[in-house]
Amino acid sequence: MNQFSYVRVTSKESAISAMAKDKTAMFLAGGTNLVDLMKSGVTSPERLVDINNVPLATIEETKTGLRIGALAKNTAVAENALVIKHFPLLSQALKAGASPQLRNMATVGGNMMQRTRCHYFYDNALPCNKRNPGSGCGAIGGFTRMHAIFGASDKCIAVHPSDMCVALTALDAVITVAGPKGERKIPFGDFHRLPGDTPEQDNNLQRGELIIAVDIPFNQLSAHTHYLKVRDRASYAFALVSVGAAMQIKGGNIADVRLAMGGVAHKPWRLKEAEAWLKGKSATEENFRKAASMAMTNAKSQGGNAFKLTLAPNTIVEALKTAAAQA
């Protein structure tokens, strides 16, 4: 770990101005990913701006939905009565992630900012375009079991590791960020990026901007939700594939539906075509299977992850079946 200075701020204004002063500075929230990255020398900020004392941890109901402060802890969100009532999918997804100890530290904003778990990114002795642009992608042609089947490029095949972000993508959340030029809103689906030629950029947050909150609009989807995470052990493992499904079912027909996947792309992967096709159809396994196969158009294996071409549609079907079966 390099030597770094540390400053603690108590307002978003002081946070933003501290960041503007130092190009190598980074925000520190829960630290559950950043500290690991610093220890392994992947990230070497010369200044840490600790924002944990900035009052941004509130979870409140607004006229149009719920507003969750960027510094709300993952556990606090997962256990929040309003979240459980209005957006059970979010609570389920959060509880599927990490371990209780990590969820007690990790924040909503930090969860969005967490970096890929691709091993080649973490090992300084191996090539990685995300860590060291231009050095090549170590994963391509190597150990690809955990890697992307959608939206990868020849520069990067890493996946985004978050469970929470899968739910927020499905729920049409909107992120509010603040920077030196003021506040702006980013629809959740536009926040994370595909790797393209610039895999070093995980998302569209601008240098110096701070995530303030995420808004989730009310919907009619809370009765039938399921977050299904398939992984190599029963807990504390990243997804091979995960699916967040939420439906409104009226008289056996799907009135509305949201679907998103994790563990398959550089960003949480929303399945809009499958959603559109399912709308108005009856909630049957046959229809779920058709939607799932529609969602797999353009899926591409890297070799070691070929099983995801089977696992992903199966998981979509299982998630929809379980969600539909809820009373």
Partner: peptide, 25 residues
């Protein structure tokens, strides 16, 4: 324990990626 033989290096040399059973298993 998984080795990328092109490099001769482990690619899961930590307890998040090398899976020992957790209580739930």
């Amino acid at each position: 324990g998984i080795i990328d033989h092109r490099f001769g290096r482990f690619v899961n040399n930590n307890l998040a990626d090398y899976h020992v059973p957790v209580s739930a298993d």
